[in-house]
Design a protein around this nucleic acid. Structure first.
Lengths: 299, 299
DNA sequence: CTGAAAGCGCTAACAG
DNA sequence: CTGTTAGCGCTTTCAG
């Protein structure tokens, strides 16, 4: 019999089994935009570890930060009968994807952007306080004109980090100047342009904070191009850290999100919900840590 | 009827459909070690784009660079009836995974490490010539004692890059000194130690090349710790580039693998094989480009 | 052209 | 305890 198995090249059909059992597929869906998440690896590692532990695989899809693509993707995941879903909601998610997901009854947890605490488990970085702390630190170095390059409008992360920036200004008795809040589009090129605009201001800022890693790169490059010295001409603090930040010139002061923890908590919340669908929804905020290096003016 | 659909919360069952049709699952498997591939995003983007184009999703799994884990993973992928597989073979793949894969008849393409041109389509970087070119360049700067920090023994990439290093030495009439070939274990910490050993040599090298990005980081950190100035005390050239290499201090001269192209070609070869299972096997080598910056001694 | 029936590869609940 | 049968949710074929 076993010989026959060998010679026929027989393989168990997991699909048929699932269908017959009416049970689980041992597959969990992960929907996010890899493009806008360079920390994919960190985030996904704990998810995959936990998946492997229960004999599951990850069905990975790209949302492309697009409500439509996301809707299709989640639909496809639903049809493939994943046991659970981890989703980094795109802008516009709330219109169609989230309602659909809710009605489907599929255990799901939202990551990165916290958008619906009423109906979903969520895990995201605390964006406000760490950004405020970054401003605190810059103010502590004596800066009074601190600007920000903000991300794409409509993203909860953008809103929250901007709020953190303003909170930071306020509690250091610094005036909030709209001219110092420039849009960097969450991406390098636009952020570089935004930086040039800031530098062209009659009253230049002496320090700047950026809303994410891509914008940091854009700002750094445009600074280098303009021949501006960090931190002497301009101090800089980044929201989002790089793996090689201390090899940069100068080493970059940054807020490091704890992606591994986010992934970890996400998969924990997901398994919890899979075992008990009726438990109350939780939104967890993960602390992000301020990594003090030299771009802020520290020695 | 459509109302009923809505109210029942009906969803098409893709599994049942596949079973009934005996057709494809519209899922392609991707098996690699994310841990050892920081370029995951670049690599995966074209794969996912192409998958999306044909209405497929990616079933992603980790090999953990472990023959056993890899074997289980590929088995699970097979049972889930993926339409095709893209695999970055771990060391030891040839013992069990590749034979199994071969017998299964599943369209597959091997990436990153070229290990079996007889029975598989493969896509990998050209490792030899770019590494030799890096040595050429260093020799051109006048260096005569050029060392290498090599990767894990047994990996085809390690072997090939070492071969490239030796070819580079030879064609510049430089002697090959075994003391200058130190093992960095493909990972940062060990590479840092290897660098210290190199520096402790009676006849120190004046330049060093590294076998991958992790080892580059390790070497750079250990250099910084030892207070060695790049490129004055020691010139350095890296196999593997970083997204932010030109922001490093000094900007890093590196061989940049073209991961996007690798992913692109992989998915092309895969679809080609899916449509014609009997076509001859191809191994494609993707050119890697030498990015000249300052760590090599260029102005 | 609509409607019933068979079957995809399995598992679970039956008889024997 | 082994062997048969029904049925998971679909698609396809074949009658009506």
């Amino acid at each position: 019999v076993l010989d026959a198995i060998r010679s026929t090249g027989y393989r168990h059909n997991a699909l048929a089994r699932t269908l017959a059992r009416g049970g689980s597929t041992y597959t969990i869906g992960v929907a996010l935009s890899a493009q806008s998440n360079p920390y994919l690896t960190d985030l996904v590692a704990p998810i995959e570890a936990s998946a492997t532990a229960r004999g599951s695989l990850m069905l990975l899809g790209e949302t492309h930060e697009d409500a439509d693509a996301e809707h299709r993707l989640v639909g496809a995941l639903l049809e493939r009968r994943v046991d659970g879903l981890i989703l980094a909601p795109s802008p516009g998610s709330a219109e169609r994807t989230l309602p659909m997901l809710r009605e489907s009854g599929l255990p799901a947890v939202l990551i990165d952007r916290a958008v619906d605490a009423e109906h979903f488990d969520q895990v995201a970085s605390d964006n406000v306080e760490p950004m405020a702390a970054l401003v605190d630190h810059l103010a502590g170095h004596g800066h009074r004109r601190i600007a920000i390059v903000t991300g794409l409008a409509g993203l909860s992360t953008t809103t929250e980090r901007l709020a953190g920036y303003r909170r930071g200004l306020e509690r250091n008795d610094l005036p909030a100047d709209p001219a110092y809040e420039v849009a960097g589009g969450s991406e390098a090129t636009e952020a570089g342009l935004a930086m040039e605009r800031l530098w062209g201001l009659p009253e230049r800022p002496t320090a700047v904070v950026t809303g994410n890693n891509y914008m940091t790169v854009g700002v750094l490059k445009s600074l280098r191009q303009m021949g501006i010295t960090v931190p002497d001409d301009l101090a800089i603090g980044s929201f989002d850290d790089f793996e090689w930040s201390d090899l940069l010139d100068p080493p970059l002061t940054a807020v490091a999100q704890n992606w591994t923890t986010i992934g970890h908590r996400a998969i924990e919340l997901l398994t919890a919900r899979m075992t008990d669908p009726d438990r109350p929804y939780r939104t967890e905020r993960i602390v992000a840590s301020l990594m003090l290096r030299q771009s802020c003016g520290c020695a």
